[in-house]
Design a protein around this nucleic acid. Sequence first.
DNA 1: GCGAGGCTTCGGCGGTGGCCGAAGCATCCG
DNA 2: CGGATGCTTCGGCCACCGCCGAAGCCTCGC
Lengths: 259, 259
Amino acid sequence: MLTTTAFARTAALIGDPARANMLAALMDGRALTARELAEAAGVTAQTASGHLAQLTGAGLLAMERQGRHRYHRLASSAVAQMLESIMAVAAGGAAPARPVRVGPRDAALRRARTCYDHLAGQLAVAIAERMTERGQIELSPDGGVITAAGTDFLRGLGVDVAAASARAARRGGGQSGGGRLFCRPCLDWSERRPHIAGAIGAALCATCFARGWIRRIEGTRAVAVTPAGRAALDAAFGFRTSLELDFAAPHTYIGVARP
Amino acid sequence: MLTTTAFARTAALIGDPARANMLAALMDGRALTARELAEAAGVTAQTASGHLAQLTGAGLLAMERQGRHRYHRLASSAVAQMLESIMAVAAGGAAPARPVRVGPRDAALRRARTCYDHLAGQLAVAIAERMTERGQIELSPDGGVITAAGTDFLRGLGVDVAAASARAARRGGGQSGGGRLFCRPCLDWSERRPHIAGAIGAALCATCFARGWIRRIEGTRAVAVTPAGRAALDAAFGFRTSLELDFAAPHTYIGVARP
DNA sequence: GCGAGGCTTCGGCGGTGGCCGAAGCATCCG
DNA sequence: CGGATGCTTCGGCCACCGCCGAAGCCTCGC
């Protein structure tokens, strides 16, 4: 990029409501068809087609054909990180006002959701805090690292730590990484506190899905904790009770009846 | 943020060419007057005024009055990181095409510039690589950390490491940081390789300015290395000669006469 | 206090770009 | 092979939003 035109063009692409809805729908890391994205954006198929062509042309989306379907997904984790950072700023601007009345659908999103390839929401923040308390990870706004105890702990959960390490090194693009296993902190836009992203966050999230601890809630980025998952996560992270998550950030529940 | 409207609105604000130019001009971390920003955007004062009101209202900019001037700056490092990430994606989308013919002004930008509060460009990438080779820092896409040797080295350069550590902890927002000193890796959009950001990157950059090693080039985000700075940086980081920087990424110099 | 400079508000103009209907390719299926 | 489904292209409509000229408010300096 030499001028600001590419910069402005990229932001403008994200700035259209229809395209923003498409990108937000893709933030769960899955690949969706043009029709699904049209529905997510609330526009007709032909309008969506035009938008998707623009997003793909600009390198924000990657497309692959499968039969008569065309699956679109975010082109890279760099795009996901960009969208995350915009969400963080957008949420920050609105936050100073008093907490808004939120519906049950928002509550589910705040509780637990996927953020491209890792977990976010109260669940993810609680996990990060518990692992910090136990000395398994260290997080700061500038970076994070997993301790030996954390590596052992994750391995015990069934997380493929070695693969995550290899993936991080592969993405390295020239720098070594020195063998230390970093975990990228990601500011949770709903909780305003960091959770675990990066290769380790992705591996942990994948394990939660693989073991059936969480499952996607149809049509949203929110995920539900299964009964088995509840037991497993309580045991692993020492949540005293499942209610703990409700009280992790009580202000987000204003206006929502709590059982 | 509950809906995608705030998300789209934020991106749309950045997506206008005039506002994008303003934000890019503010990416050097300084505060500029409305008039200066109008000139940077290439619009009249009244148009700029409207844009600035929108950006400030959305929380992207902070404004403070000083006499009859109004100084505008980026509201937070979160905003700066967001803009950085957009630039990285925007540059990535354009990069696949063959390298563009660049002018001397772009060459200066690629050589060395400020990125909100830290250094970027070939100089910053070279510093990061040299410190990595020496085992003074470890960088990966997911995070970075300074070793004990690196802390000593920076202290020897006159960098206020303790203050940077305190600043990182203060920004921590609840998580401890455990005493380890992280350095945030930031993907350089012109070099496509990481350089040092975060509290440590800011402290190092501040030291370079304070000691007169670099100075701003009027009207751009580019910085020039002073003769004293050249000697000091060569000695500190072991650059064999100042030409080394020219060859760090030779493809960026196509079309530019090299002395 | 008065003029000058910095910044903002107002009003009207114009262009970019998103939207959909209709029609046109590609692929799958019976 | 013909109909159904998924996606794209084309053309025209319309709204939004950025732009500037003019005028008004605030602060400074003489």
